[in-house]
Design a protein around this nucleic acid. Structure first.
Lengths: 186, 186
DNA sequence: CTATCCATGTAACTAGTTACATGATTCT
DNA sequence: AGAATCATGTAACTAGTTACATGGATAG
């Protein structure tokens, strides 16, 4: 019944590993769940305020010595319950995937010149960077039992990224076949 | 300079193929770009109103005979320019991927019993449904030159979906190895 | 000694979703 | 005749982003 949003669930999940400030949660989230659930800074603070209001987390002010004062949040009993409930709820669908590059590719016949090729090259570069990142993450987590599920989610990223790269190659071969055909008409 | 949003670009792209009403655009988008750029109904209407206000599309009222009156939108010269500009802009990153199932998987050690298995089973079912859908789309578009890019985006979905399915199998094997180890401790 | 970064947040805006409304048509 | 569906949209809400603010620490 406690109307938990997905981002709220994510924050409760992170808090369930120990008390953290908003800032801590942001940096931690960036290096863990951001690949499949990015959260912007401002949203973290707003959601934390809401979770506190719902009684799912408790904030305590901590005087800063070499930094500004901050609020440290601790998950409450109610919060732990809500987290468990949310985790146990079935999730429908396959996840929202918004890909602007694909959108542009869909309209590629409206593009000028070889913009599509440039688009694909940029895409590949970004994917390769991602892949390297993901691979260093899994390497670091390999054989660490506590990090089992973190590693598995990174593995998902690897599978997925490689698939995107393979798709790019497919597009390139199809495009080059066409260009050859265009040079030798019927 | 005309501050075009991505969803605005998508609508202009669809309008560039011919005049359409909001309703037409919604149904068309659902069967074309929705796999990588879902747009909700209400947002289509709001974006169309904005595009009209910006002078990128022109609306004409059409009396309905067996249906309510409707506005049909036609892309304007300025709209076509904005579309071309937007398509030519570089797009950074690899696309936003929000996957609630992965998020839950990340927190699987907080889950009760075999909820993770159920989660993965649901995920697989949804992916298989998606895959069938995507395969029927590509089959339909195969060898239709006009639909070249539409087909390629569907191919992207196929690559990606298969990767997700492969990941599920990987998780299953890892989980079953662990269960075996749990039965025969050190 | 000043420019940049760390650590913390707030305020204002934009994008996206859900719920509501309506009348005609076709299905049972 | 009543229920579901088509074909349109509007209104109200929620989620997410971008821009702003601040003061101490550290690097050059």
């Amino acid at each position: 019944m406690p109307d938990i949003t997905t981002t709220g669930g994510a924050l409760l999940g992170l808090l369930s590993k120990g008390p953290r400030s908003g800032y801590d949660l942001i940096t931690f989230a960036d290096r863990s769940i951001a690949h499949f659930w990015p959260i912007s800074r401002a949203l973290v603070y707003r959601e934390l305020a809401r979770l506190e209001q719902l009684g799912m987390a408790k904030a305590t002010m901590v005087k800063g010595r070499k930094a500004p004062d901050k609020r440290t949040y601790t998950i409450s009993r109610a919060g732990a319950n809500a987290l468990a409930e949310w985790l146990d709820e079935p999730s429908l669908g396959t996840g929202r995937v918004k890909n602007e590059i694909l959108l542009k590719c869909f309209f590629a016949d409206r593009m000028s010149g070889d913009r599509l090729e440039a688009l694909l090259d940029d895409y590949r570069a970004a994917l390769l960077a991602d892949l390297a990142d993901l691979e260093s993450i899994t390497a670091r987590l390999d054989g660490v039992p506590r990090a089992r599920y973190a590693r598995l989610t990174a593995r998902h990223g690897i599978h997925s990224t490689r698939a995107h790269l393979a798709w790019i190659e497919e597009v390139w071969t199809e495009l080059s076949i066409e260009r050859k055909e265009a040079r030798t008409p019927h």
